[in-house]
Deep mutational scan, measured.
Amino acid sequence: KELVSALYDYQEKSPREVTMKKGDILTLLNSTNKDWWKVEVNGRQGFVPAAYVKKL
């Protein structure tokens, strides 16, 4: 599985998104959309802005 690192804090703005803190390591589930990537963090799945994470 592919991992990404959070470059910035992000506070979810809808139920489809997830909150992350800078430095968090997230499991990348889907990166086909260039703007929003689906990740899993702390057992929750949702979307984060692609520009806020980088692949490890």
Rank of each mutant, 00 (worst) to 15 (best):
Q45D: 06
V18A: 05
I25K: 06
T27H: 10
Y10C: 02
L26I: 08
D35Q: 12
P49C: 04
E17V: 06
V18N: 03
G46T: 02
S5I: 15
G23F: 06
Q11S: 12
K38M: 15
A51N: 12
M20G: 00
L29Q: 03
D35K: 14
G23V: 00
D24E: 11
Y10W: 11
E40V: 07
L3E: 08
K1A: 13
L3A: 06
L29R: 03
Y10E: 00
T32F: 10
P49A: 02
T32P: 04
N33F: 08
Q45C: 12
W37T: 03
K21I: 09
P49S: 02
L3C: 13
Q11F: 14
E40I: 07
G23T: 02
K38Q: 13
L29G: 00
K1I: 14
Y52D: 02
L28I: 07
L26N: 00
I25M: 08
T27K: 12
T19L: 03
Y10V: 01
F47C: 13
S14M: 08
N33L: 09
W37C: 05
D35W: 15
K54V: 15
S14T: 12
V4W: 14
S5L: 15
E2K: 10
P49D: 02
E17P: 04
V4C: 15
A50H: 03
I25F: 06
D24L: 05
G46C: 03
Y8P: 00
L26Y: 10
Y8G: 05
K54Y: 12
D9I: 02
L26A: 10
L3S: 07
V18S: 02
L28N: 00
P15D: 13
S5G: 08
R44S: 06
K13F: 06
L26C: 11
Q45T: 14
R16V: 10
N33T: 06
T27S: 09
Q45F: 08
V48H: 00
S31V: 08
N30V: 09
V53D: 00
F47Y: 15
L26H: 02
R16K: 12
G23N: 07
S31T: 12
N33V: 05
V41F: 15
Q11M: 13
G46N: 01
R16D: 12
E40T: 06
V41G: 08
N30I: 09
K55N: 08
D35F: 15
Y8N: 08
V41A: 11
A6P: 02
T19E: 03
V53Y: 01
E40K: 05
D35S: 12
V53K: 00
K22C: 07
S14R: 09
L3W: 13
R44Q: 08
E2H: 12
L56D: 07
K38A: 09
I25E: 04
T32D: 15
E17G: 14
R16C: 15
M20S: 01
V18P: 01
F47G: 00
I25R: 06
D9H: 06
A51Q: 11
Q45S: 12
V48K: 01
I25A: 04
P49L: 04
K21V: 10
T19A: 07
P15Y: 10
K1S: 12
E2M: 14
T27W: 14
D9Q: 04
W37V: 07
G43K: 05
W36R: 03
G46V: 04
V41S: 11
K55H: 11
V41Y: 11
E2L: 13
Q11L: 13
L29D: 01
K22I: 07
D24H: 04
N33A: 09
K22T: 08
D9M: 04
P49T: 01
K1D: 10
L29S: 02
K38F: 15
K13H: 09
L28F: 03
E12Q: 14
S5D: 04
K55D: 06
P15T: 10
A6F: 01
K13A: 11
K54F: 11
L28M: 03
M20Y: 02
W37L: 05
P49R: 04
L28D: 00
P15S: 13
G43N: 08
D24N: 06
N42M: 09
K34P: 14
P15A: 13
N30K: 07
W37P: 01
P49K: 04
V53T: 04
V39Y: 01
V41N: 11
V4G: 14
N30A: 09
Y8D: 07
A51T: 11
G43R: 04
V41H: 14
V4P: 02
V48N: 00
Y52A: 12
G43T: 05
S5R: 15
V53F: 05
S31D: 15
A51P: 08
K54I: 14
G43A: 05
S31P: 06
E40M: 09
N33R: 10
R16W: 15
D24T: 07
A50Q: 05
A51E: 11
L3V: 09
V48P: 01
L56V: 12
E17F: 07
A50I: 03
L3K: 11
K21T: 09
R16T: 12
Y8T: 08
K22V: 09
L26W: 03
K55R: 14
P15G: 10
V53H: 00
D24M: 13
Y52M: 13
G46L: 04
V41D: 03
P49H: 02
T27Q: 11
V18Y: 04
K55C: 13
K13M: 12
E40F: 06
T27F: 13
K22N: 04
I25C: 07
E40H: 05
D24A: 08
G23P: 00
K1C: 15
G46E: 01
K34H: 11
N42E: 10
D35Y: 15
V39L: 03
K55I: 14
L7F: 04
K55Q: 10
L7I: 12
N42V: 05
V41W: 07
W36E: 04
K54Q: 14
N42T: 05
S5K: 15
A51D: 10
S14W: 06
L28A: 02
P49F: 04
E40L: 08
S14P: 05
T32G: 10
Y8A: 11
R16Q: 13
N30D: 15
E17D: 05
V18I: 15
N30Y: 08
E17S: 08
K38Y: 15
N30T: 08
M20N: 01
K55G: 07
D35H: 15
K13L: 10
K55Y: 12
T19H: 04
E12D: 05
E12M: 14
K34L: 10
E2I: 15
A6E: 00
M20W: 02
G46K: 02
Y10R: 02
L26T: 01
G23K: 03
L56Q: 08
S5V: 15
L7S: 05
V48E: 01
P49Y: 03
F47D: 03
T32W: 10
V48F: 00
T19I: 03
E2S: 12
I25S: 04
E17T: 10
K22M: 10
T27N: 08
K54H: 11
V39M: 02
T27G: 05
W36C: 08
Y10M: 01
L3D: 04
K38G: 05
Y10H: 03
Y8C: 15
E40C: 12
K13Q: 14
E12C: 14
G23D: 06
R44V: 09
S31R: 09
K55P: 12
R44N: 06
L56S: 07
G23C: 07
L3Y: 15
L7R: 08
Y52P: 00
E12R: 15
V41K: 13
T32I: 09
W37K: 01
V39D: 01
V39F: 00
V39E: 01
A50P: 05
L56C: 13
S31Y: 08
P15N: 11
I25V: 12
V18R: 02
I25G: 02
E12K: 15
M20A: 02
V39I: 08
W37A: 04
T32M: 11
D35I: 15
Q45Y: 09
W37S: 03
I25L: 10
V39K: 00
E12W: 07
Q11E: 14
K34E: 11
A50K: 07
W36G: 01
W36D: 01
V53I: 10
